[in-house]
Design a protein around this nucleic acid. Structure first.
Length: 226
DNA sequence: GCCCAGGTGGGTA
DNA sequence: TACCCACATGGG
């Protein structure tokens, strides 16, 4: 029998899904491309990441071997549109060098690790923090890891379910501890939170009747100047 | 011109 | 542990 919080979380999910529909995450052609995209999208708009990925694709660098063949400088040139290009080029190098060194460049071998071990392994790599690790676990390795991001913190703190300074593990536990560990559910829920978080309110508070999660517009962004 | 975007790592108190 | 900052492009 689900507790109150479980019912609340599922109700929020249902409302978001009814409003926005399936989001089709993660937009990528392969698990390796998910990893690349997860690093490139750090604090960066996805539209910019798409341009960088297109450049990497044209350079044949969307496979471990293809990316490993490029220097950090060459990678940086490809991913320039995604911002932080020098930093991210080294992050990508760190991942493929590790994959080559420890698993012969075979992602399936890395993904053969048990989930908790795989998460710690990913977190040990330069450039992979909790959100990126969980994105890889969920969308590339098909593990039930709930992904927490800035939108999740803002939406759920404004709904009054957590503090706006809640830690990553605490916020993740809110979901992991009160939802069935279902990969498809976790994928869609995170994508829907991002979709909703991007929504701009077109009305003054209070009185946002179009919002699926309540009427005060307090949980998503307010359009500047409104 | 200003703010923000699907964070992370390193330095300092 | 808890801040603070650098990292950088592109769209609204």
């Amino acid at each position: 029998m689900p507790d109150d919080l479980s019912r609340r979380l599922l109700d929020i999910y249902d409302r978001l899904f009814a409003t926005y529909g399936p989001q089709g995450w993660w937009p990528a052609d392969s698990p390796f491309e998910v990893i690349v995209g997860a690093i490139l999208t750090q604090n960066t708009a996805w539209t910019n990441v798409e341009k960088a990925i297109a450049n990497l694709r044209a350079a044949g660098a969307l496979t471990p071997a293809g990316l490993l063949a490029l220097s950090a400088e060459e990678i940086a040139l490809c991913i320039r549109p995604a911002g932080y290009f020098n930093t991210k080029a080294h992050k990508l190098r760190a991942v493929v060098e590790f994959l080559d060194r420890e698993h012969g460049g075979d992602l399936d071998r890395l993904f053969a690790l048990e989930t908790a071990v795989l998460r710690e392994t990913l977190l040990g790599l330069y450039g992979i923090g909790p959100e990126t690790a969980d994105s890889i676990l969920l969308y590339a390795a098909q593990r039930p890891a709930f992904v927490v991001d800035a939108y999740t913190r803002r939406v759920f703190s404004r709904l009054g379910l957590v503090s706006d300074t809640v830690s990553y593990p605490d916020l993740q536990s809110l979901f992991a501890g009160h939802l069935p560990p279902d990969v498809a559910l976790f994928k869609e829920y995170h994508a829907l939170i991002v979709r909703h978080g991007k929504e701009r309110c077109t009305k003054r508070q209070p009185g946002c009747a179009s919002c699926p999660l309540g009427g005060d517009c307090a949980h998503h962004q307010l359009r500047p100047g409104v």
